[in-house]
């Protein structure tokens, strides 16, 4: 059952991604609405698949790579829908939905069997820690997407040849504001994720710092975003620099997420 819902969600996201790319070239209010409808239906199906998997496994479905990428996509779509209804940003979908589709596709290709979790890791910390980490990282992903939009729009204005997407992209100010807001959401969540991770390590192994490569990387990510916020608040780094930093920040997350496999197995069992 969970497979069926997952595949359906994938199909809906795929369609939405196609429409969102078409939107870059020609758009109307109808195409945006249709795209959002597909995202929303896909999201509902996706939610059902995750809930069913939770029931099957008896724990948060974030333990193997298939589950983790799927749940990460779910968080991004959730944030996308919230942003879309709150700010109605033109073309945001075109920058987010292809990413969601790629994530879901990689999730679909990863092995899906439910593996038992080692007993010392079975605790309520699993849900708390991963939920915080995933939503925080999703906020950073959105911030990077918005950052790319900012850089494109900034290019149009600076080059003095505003054409193409210029009319349909939102203003620089709103992109910068949302980028900042997303980071102010993501940063405390990441901080809490690191703290809860340490507490979990303490309860499982009796040590706060029994870390692996991912823990180190999480701290690097945390420092990156600390720099983004610090330079913004103290030196007034905004706009282009903030956008670039938020993209760099998200790249470090992606390295943490996918790169670890290349560096050997760590305690984060799913990768």
């Amino acid at each position: 059952m969970t497979t069926l819902f997952f595949e359906l969600a994938l199909t809906f996201y795929f369609t939405a991604a196609i429409i969102s790319v078409v939107e870059l070239f020609r758009s109307s209010k109808t195409t945006t609405k249709v795209m959002l409808l597909f995202v929303a239906v896909g999201f509902i199906l996706h939610t059902v698949s995750i809930v069913l998997r939770y029931a099957d496994a008896g724990r948060m479905p974030v333990v193997n790579p298939h589950e983790a990428t799927s749940f990460f996509s779910w968080c991004i779509v959730l944030l996308f829908l919230i942003l879309e209804f709150r700010y109605n940003i033109g073309l945001l979908g075109s920058f987010i939905m292809p990413l969601v589709f790629v994530l879901m596709l990689s999730s679909a290709m990863l092995p899906r069997e439910i593996k038992p979790l080692s007993p010392e890791l079975q605790s309520y910390w699993l849900s708390i820690h991963t939920l915080l980490a995933f939503i925080g990282n999703a906020a950073f992903a959105m911030a990077a997407g918005i950052g790319i939009m900012y850089l494109i729009q900034e290019r149009y204005v600076k080059s003095k040849h505003p054409s193409g997407l210029f009319q349909r992209l939102p203003s620089l100010q709103i992109l910068d504001e949302i980028n900042y807001r997303l980071i102010t959401i993501g940063f405390p969540l990441l901080t809490l994720a690191i703290i809860t991770g340490a507490l979990w390590a303490q309860s499982a192994w009796g040590s706060y710092l029994k870390g692996d490569f991912r823990v180190v990387w999480a701290i690097i990510t945390w420092l990156t975003y600390a720099v983004v916020l610090h330079t913004r608040l103290l030196a007034g780094w905004r706009g282009k620099r903030a956008a670039i930093l938020s993209i760099i920040g998200f790249l470090t997350i992606l390295i943490a997420f996918f790169g670890i496999k290349l560096l050997g197995k760590g305690l984060h069992v799913f990768l």
Partner: peptide
């Protein structure tokens, strides 16, 4: 009728793409 075709309106349009409000 979408894009500005006078210099002064073009300036206002650009201002609106830099600042939201």
């Amino acid at each position: 009728a979408e894009n500005a075709v006078s210099i002064s309106f073009a300036a206002v349009e650009l201002a609106k793409k830099i600042f939201t409000d």
